[in-house]
Design a protein around this nucleic acid. Structure first.
Lengths: 347, 347
DNA sequence: CAGCACCATCGATGCGCATCGACGATGCGA
DNA sequence: TCGCATCGTCGATGCGCATCGATGGTGCTG
């Protein structure tokens, strides 16, 4: 756009981005020395280092990422494969992205966003084109082709979720089964023999997200152990809304148990409209983030995205650094914890 | 990890990623021909093209992004500078990311995520290192250093938000001022002379997000025009929660007007607990997404992230392609629209 | 005072691709 | 029949950096 006429002897001098060779010239050293100053892979005398660093600052030099990737065989980038139409909450996804990005930046890595819409091809592409050194795959399905690709691909992959075919792949997630168990047990402890469960959207279930059956299994198994009957209902934002609300809010002779897989505000609103006060006329437990649970004063287990993210990045960088063997810690899980709030009676 | 012993004459043959030279050999053409087949920048006979494409498929060749960037002076990547602790809703941000990413992928561009935490340095870095061809900056402040950087930097930048110092920078956003005006006018049309406004968190206001004063100005100006008094309250999740709820839910002799800058569920819950039914005892309007507004049956204006995103990507690629001059369409705005739902009486 | 080890730096090379100029082949008209 | 334009392909080059081997210089020991 602009022509800088500081013509340093040459004819016309377009405003050019400085290269490491320019820095070298400016500092009076060789290009390789500049490179070693930046990487620290060979000893450099403090005077030379200073001269180079000053030159870098003077020219506002930044290394060319592409050239680095080409010569250095590493991109300093990790890719996150993410469903953009969030199947769990957007807030939860953002937390993952936040934690992973911060961890990445701490090591001067950047983050590339890949949409899950691309499916397996997206994973192949980012690795094949050497766009990244490692990949995090979010929200895998119960059986997910990307898990297969993860094994083939020549870059470390960590999967968030516990798919059924996850052998030999690094899988990490919150313990949804444990959460299901915990929530049912809490209601059982409060004396309920029957629990109404407001579950996931039919399309979420149909999409086969791995956490749905895991949670369900945990809940079901706890219900069997404790002799509790689970009555599953459609979620409050599904077509069956009215039916669900009617069934769930029907007046009962005594408190009954309600388990929500999200902090469905409509259900809570409907309860209060029917004169059912959580923690008095009805015991409500939920799978919900701390924020949501606090906002609605719900006894809940959070899905702990930060803890999961931390383990994900720890493993990812261990794999990148060669400090870990891929696929060894398959199916590692962050334990569920129940926080009691006003929506249940004290046991 | 693995040694493939298809030894094609050589000693040992590590599983290597194929290059365009490998494709060329496989297809019996020169490397440059492979390149021209892929770019389409020179005519290629159909037979040669087919041979090359078959070779590419056979070897599952993918071009090396770094090498491309180095030789081609373009990265086919756009960067999104994003606050990860969302100041507006996570859902809204995700929608932006989704739209931008889809538009990018349509043109075989990838998306790099940059956290706003890095501030101006992040912008400088991604452009300086040639990590991207263009940048979208989300959620700029009223006065934002990144806007200054945007002018200096040697890559197109589009800013989401209308900062005060945005001259010469491409700024795009939803018309928050218009939304403020529209919402106040709706309540005025319903006959209210006084309106309680539940506003933003003090820290959001302190952070200087540009949309806050824009919305406020629109609301205030409409209030003056219509002789309406605006009473601002702290948001329902701020420390002043109890006070706000008391003031807002105080019984009135007749319906009063309530304007929410988000679909605060606590306020709505509190209203119903106080026996105030939106659309009957109180008229509630909100600045809220369609999803939220529908869930709570709120008369609202949505902030239309999809429309904004579409204009952003359109402009971004126009700038990349050289079809537009930077900074010309400064301060383009997507108009606000009011959707009436059950939380207000019919006018 | 000679010899050696080691430290700091340099020069050369190649990563994989896009691009430019060159050039052979083919088709056309005269 | 030959000359010339056009089309399709090739070879060479360089993008900016990391890395390897080489080398000059310094301090040390015997």
């Amino acid at each position: 756009m602009r022509i800088d006429d500081e013509s340093s002897g040459d004819v016309t001098d377009v405003a050019k981005v400085p290269t490491s060779a320019d820095v070298a010239r400016e500092a009076g050293v060789s290009q390789s020395t500049v490179s070693y100053v930046m990487s620290g892979k060979r000893p450099i005398s403090s005077t030379t280092r200073r001269r180079v660093e000053e030159a870098i600052a003077r020219l506002t030099y930044e290394p060319h990422a592409g050239a680095r990737a080409l010569a250095g065989h590493r991109t300093s980038t990790i890719a996150i494969v993410m469903p953009l139409r969030p199947t769990s909450s957007a807030q939860r996804l953002m937390t993952f992205v936040e934690e992973i990005t911060l961890a990445a930046r701490e090591r001067d890595y950047d983050v590339l966003l890949v949409t899950a819409d691309e499916g397996p091809a997206g994973l192949r592409r980012v690795v094949g084109r050497s766009l990244c050194d490692a990949v995090v795959v979010m929200e895998v399905g119960t059986t997910d082709e990307r898990v297969t690709i993860a094994r083939e691909v020549r870059a470390p992959v960590v999967v968030v979720g516990i798919p059924e075919d996850g052998d030999g792949v690094d899988c990490l997630d919150f313990d949804f089964a444990g959460a299901g168990r915990l929530l049912v047990e809490e209601l059982a402890d409060l004396g309920h023999r029957a629990v109404d469960v407001v579950g996931w959207d039919p399309d979420v279930v149909a999409d086969g997200y791995n956490y749905v059956p895991r949670f369900t299994r945990g809940a079901t198994s706890a219900a069997e152990d404790r002799g509790v009957e689970l009555r599953w209902h459609l979620p409050a934002d599904a077509p069956g809304l009215r039916t669900t609300l009617e069934q769930v809010c029907a007046p009962r002779p005594e408190p009954h148990g309600l388990l929500l897989v999200r902090a469905f505000p409509e259900v809570l609103r409907s309860l209060s409209e029917h004169g059912l006060r959580p923690g008095r006329d009805v015991d409500v437990v939920a799978l919900a983030s701390d924020t949501e649970a606090q906002a609605h004063d719900l006894t809940a287990t959070a899905t702990r995205p930060r803890e999961v993210s931390r383990r994900v990045t720890a493993r990812l960088f261990a794999l990148i650094d060669g400090d870990a063997v891929p696929g060894r810690a398959a199916a590692e899980t962050v334990p569920a914890e129940l926080v009691r709030r006003g929506s249940t009676r004290r046991p």
